[in-house]
């Protein structure tokens, strides 16, 4: 090219090339979603990361003290704090148990639903939808009441059955009993999603496939393992990742049922811990660092999970 083309023409040509190759069209369709995601996700995330590198507490927010870029100081404080590691451990174990529990209950009920008569199934779905529709705050308060040491029907029933040890028994006193109580509430309010999704998944498996397997002499267990489960994998992936993400960042249930983290902070999980640091004690920088770590962990877990699935040959 002897003379450089004017920039506009270059841009126009590039656009034309894109259009010819059909690469522009998807972006046009994606644009609205990208704009919304950019505004609602990327920008806050950017701010979160930014704040985590500053000494940013209440006096800095109101401008009473100057802002100071503190580099990795917030992260160093966090990683050196034994409480953070304990909280992280709590979160991983607790979220793992919640995911397992939710998948097990939801999966079993989904299978059960395919074998029930229509109206019993409707009843089951209505009950599940009720649990699903209950706000976490209300649900937590109701469970707390059910398990109240002296007034709760659970303790009264247990004591009435002759187990007098449960009179005045506090379910939130020891660490694992408190986690167990919260776990049951979490499973109760999140199994419906798993159940409905898996039920739809099971129903979408063509009857011919199962019939063919049966004709080939496969047992029911064999069919479930080798035919239905692989075909359910896309649905399983979605419910598992969703559950991991939900349960890893649980807040409401722990905050309400253990009174903001339990006795001596024994029931703290990452999100409640971040809230305590960021908002209750006004250390936004440190709180943001916890947020960034949580986000990174969740991304890592999801990626590893997807990777493992892909290696098993499933195209998603």
């Amino acid at each position: 090219m002897a003379t450089p083309a004017p920039p506009l023409r270059v841009a126009g040509r590039a656009l034309a090339r894109l259009r010819r190759s059909g690469r522009l069209e998807p972006w046009v369709y994606l644009a609205p979603a990208l704009v919304v995601l950019g505004a609602l996700l990327a920008y806050p995330l950017y701010q979160l990361v930014l704040v985590s590198f500053y000494d940013y507490r209440q006096p800095q927010v109101t401008g009473a003290e100057p802002l100071r870029f503190s580099g990795w100081a917030n992260y160093r404080t966090l990683l050196a704090d034994p409480q953070f590691w304990e909280v992280l451990g709590n979160t991983v174990v607790f979220a793992g148990a919640c995911v397992t529990g939710t998948l097990a209950v939801g999966g079993c009920l989904a299978v059960l639903a395919t074998r029930l008569s229509a109206w019993v199934r409707t009843l089951l779905f209505l009950a599940a939808l009720g649990a699903w529709a209950t706000p976490a705050v209300t649900g937590s308060a109701v469970w707390l009441f059910l398990f109240d040491p002296s007034l709760g029907p659970v303790n009264q029933a247990l004591a009435g059955l002759g187990m007098t040890g449960f009179e005045g028994h506090s379910w939130t006193y020891t660490k694992w009993s408190a986690f167990g109580l919260v776990l049951s509430q979490v499973v109760w309010c999140s199994f419906p999603f798993v159940m409905v999704t898996l039920y739809a998944g099971i129903r979408s498996i063509p009857g011919e496939v199962i019939e063919a397997a049966r004709l080939d002499g496969a047992s029911t267990g064999r069919i479930a393992l080798s035919v239905m489960l692989p075909m359910l994998r896309p649905a399983m992936v979605i419910v598992t990742i969703q559950s991991i993400i939900w349960d890893f960042k649980i807040f409401t249930q722990i905050y309400i049922m253990t009174g903001g983290g339990g006795i001596a902070g024994q029931n703290l999980v990452l999100n409640v811990y971040a809230y305590q640091q960021a908002f209750a004690s006004g250390q936004y920088g440190l709180g943001s660092a916890i947020g960034v770590v949580t986000t990174a962990l969740l991304l890592a877990i999801s990626l590893v999970y997807l990777r493992v699935l892909r290696r098993q040959g499933e195209v998603l």
């Binding site: 006096p59 903001g260 983290g261 006795i263 001596a264 209750a280 004690s281 006004g282 250390q283």
Partner: peptide, 24 residues
């Protein structure tokens, strides 16, 4: 001191009392 808000929010004193009372 401004640090009191954080001390209060983190429950430093209740934690101390609770750890002793639970025998931890």
């Amino acid at each position: 001191t401004g640090a009191w808000a954080a001390i209060d929010a983190e429950g430093v004193l209740p934690t101390m009392v609770q750890r002793v009372s639970s025998g931890d």
